[in-house]
C-alpha cells in the first residue's frame, strides 16, 4: 500500500514539473532517478487514454438516454 501511495505521489510530482514550462528542467528530472519517471509518465498517458475512452462512451450513452 505504501509503495502504491509513493507511486501516486511520484505521478503528482511529475505533473508539477510539467507545470513549470522549462523543458530542460523536465528533461533533467525525468531522466533522473534512473529514468523511473519515464515509466510513470507512460503509465499516466495510458490511463488518460482509457479515461478519454470512458468519456466518449459516456457522451454517447447520454445521447441515447435523452432519446429514450
Amino acid at each position: 500500500m505504501k509503495k502504491l501511495i509513493t507511486t501516486v505521489l511520484m505521478l503528482m510530482v511529475t505533473m508539477q514539473l510539467f507545470a513549470q514550462d522549462q523543458t530542460s528542467a523536465i528533461t533533467d528530472t525525468l531522466a533522473g532517478s534512473e529514468k523511473i519517471y519515464v515509466v510513470a509518465v507512460c503509465a499516466a498517458v495510458i490511463l488518460l487514454g482509457l479515461i478519454f475512452f470512458l468519456f466518449s462512451i459516456d457522451g454517447r450513452l447520454k445521447k441515447l438516454e435523452k432519446k429514450s
Binding site: K3, T7, S33, E34, K35, I36, V38, V39, C42, A43, I46
Partner: peptide, 22 residues
C-alpha cells in the same frame, strides 16, 4: 511492473519497465 526486479542496463536503466506498458 513497478516493483519487480529488473536487470541493470546501460542507458535504459529503470525505463526498461516501459516494456510492460508500451
Amino acid at each position: 511492473g513497478f516493483l519487480s526486479s529488473v536487470p541493470a542496463l546501460p542507458i535504459l536503466h529503470q525505463s526498461i519497465r516501459n516494456l510492460y506498458f508500451h
